[in-house]
Amino acid sequence: MAVAEVATKKQELNLRKIAYEQDKEAIAPGHKLCPGCGITVIMRQLFAAVDYPIIVANATGCLEVCSGNLPYTSWRVPWIHNAFENAAATASGIEAMIKALKRKGKLPADKPIKVLAIGGDGGTYDIGFQALSGAMERGHEMVYLCFDNQGYMNTGGQRSSSTPFGASTHTTPVGSVIPGKMQERKDICFILAAHHIPYVAQCSPSRWPDFARKIRKAFEANGPAFVNCLSVCPTDWGTEPQKGLVITQMAVETCYWPLYEVDRGVWRITYKPKQKLPVTEWLANQKRFRHLLRPENKWMVERIQAELDRRWEQLLALERATGGTGEA
């Protein structure tokens, strides 16, 4: 089924699955993720959105260390953690083996087993980038999901290439000379789009229907698909655990974190705020940005706003240029 066809189908959210069938969820309660962690929400939403048998390859990071703890496991689906930088390569091997077993008649050819690779932004943008790029180029049928909490959180909150300009982390501390991270965040979805794979999407758990729809499209892409999802980290962003989704939604409403997809070359923004809020709405309520609101750092906020505006305009232009403005 073409990706676009899936998109036009109005699919219901499987609320029941989350509300009443917790004992059937892919991740059992009792994991060790922090209260208010975005990863948990993302994972539950993901598995509620689809019904395939799924094999998971998980990169080292918060999700991995908090869900598979010998002799226990939170996973009710087949799951493997190999190392930090190789979730995509591991998933390549899984996908190849499924293909081989089907070809040799050791597995029913019509069994719809799906492969999901999961990594944090460190395991995706940085150390795992080469393996990811290789797997995408080779065309393995897998969904790669990045839960992007904008830093190396499992090791205590260090910078990654996804950490935003100005943010304070344990390796870009706010000092008397240097006020936080001095480099811009790299745009992983643009890089993945340049691989010309069938499907790339950016999403947020604060817009669940949008996320669920994108996940379904990703799994039906008939080739590699990449989904980047913003994931609040109360511990290292310095946010109140109960406010995670509200804060995440501010990233969307300010257009700091645009929701869009690149569906076989067509760029489509899937949510356009009626009124684009100023970026300070996103920067507020997060301790990692607290210093930015000081008068002497006004230039930094201005720079963030200007960069954000530039990227948003670029995205709008891409949407127009590729014919993505019509109905999805």
Partner: peptide, 17 residues
């Protein structure tokens, strides 16, 4: 694959499958 690191990583994924 695109590197030997990925070669062995893919081997692990495939063998576990």
């Amino acid at each position: 694959v695109e590197s030997e690191h990925s070669a062995m990583s893919a081997c692990v994924g495939a063998a576990a499958t």
